[in-house]
């Protein structure tokens, strides 16, 4: 299992090397995704591995960043053409500080893929038992904190959000009783759920106030849009086709997803069920005004952008056709 992932990494590395040397007459597109390994953010990689970009004359190079802020930065200063899946917050913060970027489409709408869990024998049996309990989120201002706060508000719960860092550290803190409720993003810890070590208390999709809000977007550098707008559009068109294919051929993509995360195929299939196709639709950003308010609350923006600025920032170049 270990070697499978490593072999994959090695292939990726060599593929990258081969690509940079050979391949002419292809349009080069440099894409940064956040958190490679998640179902939605790994789609460009899957599409590339299947050779679909190449067929369309695109030479796509994918690197991945560990968070939204770095993703935005990789487009601003790191020579990336497209930033895939940064959070709205980081994009707004970058934009008001003069970053030369535009939002070209929604990447992910609503909250899916994350779940909150307790120890199997925890006295917390349902969300109603959460009053006075500690609930983990990754870091202040991060997406997970927003989710916990929204949940707290809409269910009128007296829970205490606590920053616990990465998923593995959070897991330790739950297992050792330092915190009551942990968070995880699939496929991580699904095996622990299946083994009965931990129990899912609620899923992120149950946070209703966030279910119709675009959480993550895709951005492109102004320069890229000005000089090669057609290439940018083509990239999303091809990728959209790939995502359709991924949902039509779940067995095969679940295998790629499983390999990438070094997990069992069954677990991968189980994880994919957390995401419905429409969550990954490209197109206009939903609930942007509310997102701006949240960005102000979380310290990414000082005040919401005026409409003229919003219009400037938004440059939607591609929309998924309704099925």
């Amino acid at each position: 299992m270990l070697s499978r992932k490593l072999r994959l990494l090695a292939t990726l590395a060599t593929a990258l090397a081969v690509q940079t040397s050979g391949a002419f007459a292809m349009e080069k597109v440099k894409v940064a995704t956040t958190f490679l390994g998640l179902w939605d953010t790994s789609q460009p990689q899957f599409c590339k591995d299947r050779g679909e970009f190449e067929k369309a004359g695109l030479d796509v190079e994918i690197s991945n960043t560990r968070g939204g802020s770095e993703n935005v930065q990789s487009v601003v200063a790191g020579g990336m053409d497209i930033g895939y899946s940064p959070g709205v917050n980081s994009v707004l913060a970058g934009y008001v500080q003069g970053a030369g970027i535009r939002i070209v489409s929604a990447q992910f709408t609503g909250q899916a893929g994350a779940f909150f869990y307790v120890l199997a024998d925890s006295p917390i049996k349902s969300v109603d038992d959460l009053n006075g309990k500690t609930v983990a989120f990754s870091r202040p201002g991060g997406a997970m904190e927003g989710l916990v706060l929204a949940f707290k508000e809409e269910r009128n719960l007296d829970l205490k959000p606590v920053a616990t860092g990465a998923m593995n550290a959070t897991h330790t803190m739950v297992m050792t009783g330092q915190i009551d409720v942990g968070y995880s993003v699939v496929p991580a810890l699904l095996d622990a759920v299946n083994k009965g070590e931990i129990r899912i208390l609620f899923e992120s999709s149950e946070v209703e106030s966030r279910s119709n809000l675009t959480d993550r977007v895709n951005i492109a550098s102004i320069d890229f849009l000005e000089k090669r707008r057609d290439v940018a559009t083509k990239f999303f068109e091809v990728l959209d086709g790939c995502i359709d294919w991924a949902y039509a051929n779940i067995d095969e993509t679940a295998k790629m997803y499983a390999d990438l995360n070094k997990i069992d195929l069954e677990l991968a299939k189980q994880a994919v069920k957390f995401y419905s196709r429409d969550k990954l639709n490209f197109g206009p950003v939903k609930g942007f005004d509310e997102s701006m308010e949240l960005a102000v609350r979380d310290g990414f923006l000082k005040e919401p952008l005026p409409q003229a600025k919003v219009d400037e920032l938004m440059d939607i170049i591609y929309e998924t056709k309704p099925q």
Binding site: L2, S3, L6, R7, L9, A10, A13
Partner: peptide
């Protein structure tokens, strides 16, 4: 065991 796997993996040397 993991160390052995690592040392066999070409990507480590990359």
């Amino acid at each position: 065991g993991a160390l052995y796997q690592e040392l066999l993996s070409p990507s480590l040397y990359y």
